[in-house]
Structures are given as C-alpha cells and as structure tokens.
C-alpha cells in the first residue's frame, strides 16, 4: 500500500508539470488550430538557461528562474514574430510542419551549446524528505507540485477574468469577429506563444531539478501530446486533469508493470490509453464537439 501511495504521489507531481506544459499546447491550439511540436524544445531552453545561471554563474535559484522565464517569454514572442507570422493565411498543416522544423533546429542548436551530457542542478531544495503519513516525499517534488498548481490556478483565472484572457478566448472562437471588436489578433498570437514558452520553461526547470537536464527532456513534448488530446485539445480543465491522469498512469505502470515486463511500459502506457479513450470519445474527455449545422 505504501508503495502504491508513493507511486501515486510521484505521479501527481509529474502530472502537474505535464498539465502545465500541456496548457501551452492547448493555448496555441485553441487560438490558432496549430499543434506545436516544438513545445518539448521550449522546455529545454528554460531548463538549460536556468541550469547555466545556477551552476555556472552561481546566481540564486529564484533569480535564475525569473531570468529564465523572461528568456522563454521573449523566445516565444520571437518565434511567433519570425517564424509563424510569415505563415498567416497559409494552411494549418504548413504551420504544423514549420513547428516540426523549428523543433529539429532548436534541438540542434541546444546540443551545440550544451552538448548532450546530463547536467544536474546543484542541490537547491533541502534533501531531507517530508514524511506524510506512511510515505516520504522529497522536497523538490513538493515544491514542483506547489509551483505547477499555482501556475495552473493563475492561468485559469487569467483566462476567465482578465481582459487579455477574454480576448484570447474570443480570438480562439472567431478571429474575424475578434478583429471587428477591436482585438489585435497579432498581439493575441504573440501573447499565446509567450505564455506557451513560459509554462514550458517552468516545466523544464522543475523536471530538470528532479531528473537532470539532457536533450531527452524534450520528449516530454511528445508525452504532453496525449495529455492534451486526452483532455480534449481545446479544453484547459481537460489539460489539467489529463496531465494528472497521465502522470499517475505513467508512475503506476512504471512501478508495477515495468519489473514484470522488463521495462518500457511506462513510456507506452499513455499512448495505449489515449487510443482507447479516443475510440470512445473522439473529441477527448472535455473537448468541444464541433457540430456543423447545414
């Protein structure tokens, strides 16, 4: 039982980070119908920037995190400006291919700068675990859970109540109408990419603290795809629940099935469940069904 609980807690922590990264994914999809395959590389940029500042330049962690968030923010805006804006009025599939190319290019550049070795963060959080009932949870997990949940709450409120958030929802719904209401769609797109890059950057920093940073961290971008699809690509609550669900699923299948089958189940399990759920609910668990009235 302790083992089970331990796995569930680990799963929830990783799941919360997934949910946060998936938020960026969902945002971009909602506002422009584009699936961003470079989301994983955005994770890496945040993680590497923060690692360099902390480990090489000995900047305090919180400051390093703030700087990394700013770097991610501007990177997001730059990507939108330089790569995606030239694809306005092009078919969505072209834009998706562009993000795929962006992903390869960014991974190449990142490897040139930081090589492929795993970089470990110096110990930032105290290593003594916190004991909750029968289970021990290391502090880095707790802090990660706390930060991710806080970000999720902040962004949910942002979308629901802030002017910019409402403008984003309006743009996602109907771009022409948004323009006619005085909303600058270009600004909205830039903001969307900025937020997507920031949440990915924070996710990268948190996961980097847990597992170290190396290029395979960008595979999270691929794991987040089932998270987003599972919840329904256009649903923010869906992304949050999908994230937690996939996190726990990974953790449990890794703990119980990997030893029996010789490993690898953890990586496959989310996709198997994804296929099963999509067979029953093609729009995902919370996605909006699009009904065309003829």
């Amino acid at each position: 039982m302790t083992f089970f609980l331990q796995l569930v807690v680990t799963g929830l922590v990783v799941g919360a980070v997934y949910a946060m990264v998936a938020l960026g994914f969902v945002l971009i999809y909602k506002s422009s119908d584009v699936i961003n395959f470079a989301q994983g590389e955005l994770l890496l940029v945040g993680a590497y920037t923060c690692w360099t500042l902390v480990a090489v330049y000995h900047v305090p962690f919180l400051l390093a995190m703030a700087v990394s968030i700013c770097v991610s923010l501007f990177l997001g805006i730059a990507i939108e400006r330089m790569v995606l804006r030239s694809f306005i009025n092009e078919p969505v599939i072209s834009v998706i291919m562009a993000t795929l190319g962006l992903s390869s290019a960014m991974r190449g550049i990142l490897q040139v700068i930081w090589s492929t070795d795993t970089k470990t963060f110096p110990e930032i959080f105290p290593s003594a675990p916190v004991i909750i009932g029968p289970i021990a949870v290391s502090r880095v997990y707790l802090y990660s859970l706390f930060i991710s949940l806080a970000m999720l709450v902040i962004f949910s409120l942002f979308f629901k109540y802030s002017n910019m958030g409402i403008a984003m929802r309006a743009t996602a719904d109907d771009q022409q109408a948004a323009l006619s209401m005085g909303i600058s769609v270009k600004v909205i797109f830039a903001a969307t990419w900025a937020i997507a890059a920031v949440v990915a950057g924070i996710g990268g920093i948190l996961l980097g603290n847990i597992n170290g940073v190396n290029p395979s961290l960008s595979h999270i971008g691929l794991t987040v795809l089932p998270v987003a699809i599972l919840g329904g690509l256009d649903s923010i609550p869906g992304a949050i629940l999908g994230g937690l669900f996939i996190g726990v699923l990974e953790s449990l299948s890794g703990g119980y099935l990997d030893p029996l089958l010789g490993g690898g189940v953890k990586e496959v399990a989310p996709f198997v469940v994804l296929v099963l759920i999509l067979m029953i609910r093609p729009y995902g668990l919370f996605g909006q069904e699009i009904i065309e009235r003829v």
Partner: peptide
Amino acid sequence: FSHMTVLENLMLGRHI
C-alpha cells in the same frame, strides 16, 4: 463567439 453566452458576447463589445 459561439462558445460564450449572449452576455459575454456583448461584454466583448466593451472590451476595448
């Protein structure tokens, strides 16, 4: 904005 309510649609007119 078909996923929003009538009130929300009109409030968007006040957005700017």
